[in-house]
Design a protein around this nucleic acid. Structure first.
Length: 244
DNA sequence: CTGGGGAGGGGGCCC
DNA sequence: GGGGCCCCCTCCCCA
């Protein structure tokens, strides 16, 4: 029996711990200064909240570098056969018609978008940020060009979505929803090949790989293939590639 | 050591 | 501009 509990029923949801509107009023402050302790506009943290201590190590961690000189997201460039999903991704990236349909191009990185707003958001979040970062997180050293992007990032520190069952906190409502399924046992994502079901779509996707004859991730040294990149990494770290 | 499930995070896109 | 959703990814744990 599955009981679906809306996260909105939780008292502590969501309670964003972000500066008050007057602190964020545009034009009245230096964006960087807002997030520095030296700022006269600095919003004091709630009692008991100490962002610089007591956080899990994962919160402040810097994303680890890619395991190799190839980007972690650019693992499709192998000679291995391409799955349906991968093919869809490939076509998305390389279909000349798709590119042709995207008329708005970033003048900084040449990435193209089908809508002007899409290009605008890209520039706001990324390319402009490379040259004109303004909003610094006071909890870590990350910088963002827009207040919206910074606010989204701050949630990973403040963790405003709290599970009332166990008290665990999350940065976004949908993460809390997924967590609540671990309490309710709800598993809405079913495998079409077997009877298994999963609470998380990503885990179903990983499971589907186990049904596939074609493993997406191949060891460059021994050509052995794996269903997950993490398994390939473990394989490489265990010594297969030690010779090179 | 390997394979797979569970849980969770970050960023992008769409509405 | 913000929320919801999606995709990709990582880490941990266990058989």
């Amino acid at each position: 029996k599955v009981v679906i509990i809306s996260p909105c029923l939780y008292e502590g949801y969501p309670v964003p711990v972000i500066p008050q509107p007057e602190v964020l009023r545009s034009g009245a402050y230096s964006p960087i200064a807002v997030w520095t302790t030296a700022s006269p506009f600095h919003a004091p943290l709630p009692a008991g909240l100490s962002p610089l201590s007591g956080y899990p190590a994962s919160l402040g961690r810097v994303s680890p570098p890619p395991p190799s000189d190839t980007s972690s997201k650019d693992h499709s460039g192998s000679e291995s056969p391409i799955s349906d999903e991968e093919e869809r991704l490939q076509s998305k990236l390389s279909d000349p018609h798709a590119i042709e349909a995207e008329k708005f191009q970033c003048n900084l990185c040449n990435k193209t978008y089908s809508t002007f707003s899409g290009l605008g958001k890209h520039k706001q979040l990324h390319c402009d940020a490379q040259s004109r970062k303004s909003f610094s997180c006071k909890y870590c050293d990350k910088e963002y060009v827009s207040l919206g992007a910074l606010k989204m990032h701050i949630r990973t520190h403040t963790l405003p979505c709290v599970c009332k069952i166990c008290g665990k906190a999350f940065s976004r409502p949908w993460l809390l929803q997924g967590h609540i399924r671990t309490h309710t046992g709800e598993k809405p994502f079913s495998c079409s090949h077997c009877s298994r079901a999963f609470a998380d779509r990503s885990n179903l996707r990983a499971h589907l790989q186990t049904h596939s004859d074609v493993k997406k991730y191949q060891c460059k040294s021994c050509s052995k293939t794996f269903s997950r990149m993490s398994l390939l990494h473990k394989h490489e770290e265990s010594g297969c590639c030690a010779a090179h």
